[in-house]
């Protein structure tokens, strides 16, 4: 019996259980909202806020990846910063293995959380200390988080780590300084570091956007390996929707801090329904298209600065299909087909 017929015999409940046991839920964000205080317009004026994220939900599962896609300033990186406890959410919370991360206050709990949730940064040229060798960068986390002493056992471990991320000959790489490595190699060192610490969740904030195209795929393939073979959970933040399709199983399209369309990557990229997703996909460089094709948007204004007082759909001002009710209130999410959601008045 092949798997397709087998799965159709299982009830929905059983399918869900099977999915849960295959890809256990690790980190969950529920209704994540964050307001930033703005400078007051006058000394005695009212407090003003900027809403950078409004009701973001996502689930990171071991062995799977969620991509956050959107233009600069849409709140992609802010959500990763909340997950690493750099910012604190104004509303909603992040749950790590069922526990609200705001309740982790004891230092051992915090250390454990920080060990298991690691971030990979965009710029591999400034995220490694130029004064220290690669050995130092990989040894420190092992010393701090795992109380290992430098020695033969540690050396073997470092060589194994570097071999895992494809940096060979590992012994030579260990003694090099960051400036002696290329961007792709540095990003690999950074991924080796997250492995050394023993991270379960990796928040990758545009990990490939500063790398050369020929090297980009290699780093994506390495992350794919970490996902499939080591069962790491990934949050992949990017503005490149094509690499998101390559790497992520699920995708969330963010606009101005709001989830506008989300679901399985294939469903969203192959059958985009929200006008903003359609715009994003139309703007991706594609050799088979011509530069003259008109974008489905009207640039009446720049992206709005959202505040808690704002009403309606944030995309209404640029949307070519905007209607009267679009500026009235935010539509409820609607499931277009199983696992493909949208938040748009056109589909209410």
């Amino acid at each position: 019996m092949n798997t397709a017929t087998q799965s159709s015999l299982l009830s929905d409940q059983e399918q869900k259980q099977q999915f849960d046991s295959q890809y256990p839920l690790v980190l969950e964000a529920k209704n994540l909202t964050i307001d930033f205080r703005k400078k007051r317009s006058s000394l005695f004026g009212p407090k003003e806020y900027l809403r950078a994220l409004n009701g973001l939900d996502f689930q990171l599962r071991a062995g799977r990846c969620v991509a956050l896609v959107g233009e600069s300033g849409c709140g992609k990186s802010t959500s990763a910063k909340i997950a690493t406890k750099i910012h604190k959410a104004s509303e909603g919370a992040i749950y790590y293995k069922g526990e609200n991360i705001d309740t982790l206050t004891r230092s051992e709990q915090l250390a454990e959380y920080r060990r298991e949730v690691q971030m990979v940064f965009q710029d591999p040229f400034s995220s490694l200390n130029p004064l220290h060798t690669i050995r130092y960068h990989l040894q420190r986390p092992l010393q701090i988080h795992h109380q290992l002493k430098p020695g033969k056992a540690m050396d073997e471990m470092l060589v194994e780590l570097l071999t895992k991320v494809g940096l060979t000959p590992a012994k030579e790489v260990l003694e090099k300084f960051p400036h002696q490595l290329s961007g792709g190699q540095r990003q690999r060192v950074f991924l080796a570091k997250t492995l050394a610490i023993g991270a379960e969740v990796i928040l990758a904030d545009e990990p490939t956007s500063m790398l050369d195209v020929s090297i980009r795929i290699g780093v994506l393939n390495l992350m794919n390996e970490m996902k499939h073979e080591m069962g790491k959970a990934f949050l992949y933040i990017t503005h490149d929707i094509a690499t998101a399709r390559y790497f992520a199983e699920d995708i969330i399209v963010l606009y101005c801090g709001h989830m506008v369309e989300w679901g399985s990557t294939e469903a969203v990229t192959q059958n985009p329904q929200h006008p903003y997703t359609q715009l994003l996909l139309a703007a991706v460089p594609d050799p088979s298209r011509s530069i003259h094709e008109k974008l489905p948007t009207q640039r009446s204004m720049e992206t709005p600065m959202w505040s808690p007082e704002h009403k309606g759909c944030p995309y209404a001002a640029r949307c070519p299909k905007a209607m009267a009710q679009c500026s009235q209130g935010l539509p409820e999410p609607k499931e277009l087909e199983p696992g493909h959601f949208i938040r748009c008045h056109l589909f209410v």
Partner: peptide, 24 residues
């Protein structure tokens, strides 16, 4: 050829890409 093989596509079938091995 390798450069052309380094871009994941948005349309068509998804296949594993190799990029260009090695460093500049």
């Amino acid at each position: 050829h390798g450069l052309g093989d380094s871009f994941p596509t948005l349309h068509g079938e998804l296949q594993e890409m190799k990029g260009i091995p090695g460093t500049p």
